[in-house]
C-alpha cells in the first residue's frame, strides 16, 4: 500500500464522533419511552416524570459545560431559576402570550445572561471556574429571596398560569390535563435537546469545543479562539437551562426559590453524574432516577439525603461513568463482544 493510499483511506474513515450502534439504540429507546409514558403510567407518575424531564434537560445543559468543556459549574441553577422566574413573570404580565413565543424568548434571554456572565467565568479553569459560578449562583439565589417585589421572596410566584393556555397563536388549550402538559413540555424539550446534541456532535463548532477541551494550547495554535469557543458553549448551556426552567414553570404552575438556590445547583451535579456524564442523554436518565429515588427514600426516612450523599460518594469512587457508564460496560461485554 502506497503512502497516498494510506492517506486517502484515512480521509474516508468513519468520523470519530459518529455515534455508535448501542448509543443510538439507547437514545431511541429512551426518547420513545418518554414520549409513550403517559399512555401507560399513572397520573402521579406522569406528574413526577414531567418534573424529571425539566430536571433532565437542566442536567443535560449542566453536562454540556462539564462534558464538552471540562468545567464544573457550582451555580448552574442561576440560569434555570432565571428562566423559570422570567417565564412566570411574562405569563403574569400577559396570560395570552403563546408558548411558542414565550419559551424561546426565555431561552434567548437566559442565553444572553449566560453570555454576559460566562465572559467572567470561562477565563479560568478548574476550581476557579467552580468558585466563580458558585458566587454567581449565590447572587441569583439571594436576589430571588430578597427582591420580593418581583420574585415574591420566600412565597415565590403562584397563580400565573392562565386557565386557557395559548400554545400557538389561535391554538388555545383550555385546562390541559397532566398528560397534555407533559407532551407539551416534551414537544419543546426534545427538539431543543436534539438540536444542542446535533450542534455539539455533528458540526465543526462541536469539533472545536472538543478540541479546546482536549488540548487548549493546540487548539489555539490551530487558529481557534479558545475563550470564544468556551464562552459560546457556556452560552448554549445557559440558554438550554433557561428553557428547562421556563418549561418547569409551565409544568409546575408555581415558581419558588427552590429552583434557583445553591442546593439545586448541587442537585443537578448529582443527577447529571448519577446518570453518566460521558453520554449526552445520561443526565436525563440521572434526573429520572434522582426524582424516583428521592420520592422513594423520602417516604422511608426524613434523612434520605445522607443516603444520597453516600451513594454519590460510592459512585464517584467506584463507577465514575454513572448509570450510562455501567450500561455501556455491560453492552461492551455482552452484545458488542460478538458483533
Amino acid at each position: 500500500m502506497t503512502a497516498l493510499e494510506v492517506l486517502t483511506r484515512a480521509a474516508n474513515a468513519p468520523r470519530a464522533a459518529a455515534p455508535r450502534r448501542g448509543e443510538m439504540l439507547a437514545t431511541v429507546l429512551l426518547l420513545g419511552g418518554l414520549a409513550a409514558a403517559p399512555l401507560v403510567a399513572s397520573r402521579a407518575s406522569v406528574n413526577d416524570l414531567g418534573q424529571a424531564l425539566c430536571l433532565g434537560l437542566f442536567a443535560i445543559s449542566f453536562n454540556i459545560i462539564f462534558k464538552y468543556s471540562g468545567l464544573l459549574s457550582f451555580g448552574h441553577a442561576a440560569f434555570y431559576g432565571f428562566g423559570a422566574y422570567a417565564a412566570a413573570l411574562l405569563l403574569q404580565y400577559d396570560p395570552g402570550v403563546p408558548l411558542i413565543l414565550l419559551i424561546p424568548a426565555t431561552a434567548l434571554a437566559t442565553g444572553f445572561l449566560g453570555l454576559l456572565l460566562g465572559h467572567v467565568c470561562v477565563r479560568r479553569e478548574g476550581a476557579y471556574f467552580s468558585m466563580t459560578t458558585l458566587a454567581i449562583g449565590a447572587f441569583f439565589a439571594t436576589a430571588a429571596l430578597k427582591w420580593s417585589a418581583v420574585t415574591g421572596g420566600t412565597d415565590g410566584l403562584d397563580g400565573f398560569m392562565p386557565d386557557t393556555l395559548s400554545v400557538l397563536p389561535f391554538w388555545p388549550l383550555p385546562s390541559p390535563t397532566i398528560s397534555q402538559t407533559y407532551w407539551l413540555v416534551l414537544a419543546f424539550l426534545l427538539p431543543a435537546a436534539l438540536a444542542a446534541w446535533a450542534v455539539l456532535e455533528l458540526t465543526p463548532f462541536g469539533q472545536a469545543v472538543r478540541a479546546v477541551k482536549q488540548n487548549e494550547t493546540r487548539a489555539i495554535f490551530l487558529g481557534h479562539d479558545a475563550h470564544l469557543i468556551k464562552l459560546a458553549n457556556f452560552t448554549l448551556a445557559a440558554a438550554l437551562a433557561g428553557l428547562a426552567g421556563a418549561l418547569w414553570a409551565v409544568d409546575n404552575g408555581f415558581v419558588s426559590t427552590d429552583s434557583i438556590d445553591l442546593s439545586f445547583s448541587t442537585t443537578v451535579i448529582i443527577a447529571a453524574l448519577i446518570g453518566g456524564s460521558q453520554w449526552y442523554w445520561g443526565p436525563l436518565i440521572g434526573a429520572i432516577v434522582y426524582i424516583a429515588a428521592s420520592d422513594w427514600l423520602s417516604a422511608l426516612t426524613p434523612h434520605w439525603q445522607i443516603w444520597l450523599g453516600l451513594a454519590f460518594i460510592a459512585m464517584v469512587l467506584a463507577a465514575p461513568g454513572g448509570i450510562a457508564g455501567i450500561a455501556a460496560w455491560v453492552w461492551r461485554n455482552t452484545v458488542a463482544r460478538d458483533g
Partner: peptide, 19 residues
C-alpha cells in the same frame, strides 16, 4: 484532579449536613 475532589466533597457535604 480538581474535578473528582470537588465531586467527592460535594457528596461528603451532603453526608455531614444530614448527619
Amino acid at each position: 484532579g480538581h474535578t473528582a475532589q470537588l465531586l467527592l466533597t460535594v457528596g461528603l457535604a451532603y453526608v455531614i449536613a444530614e448527619a
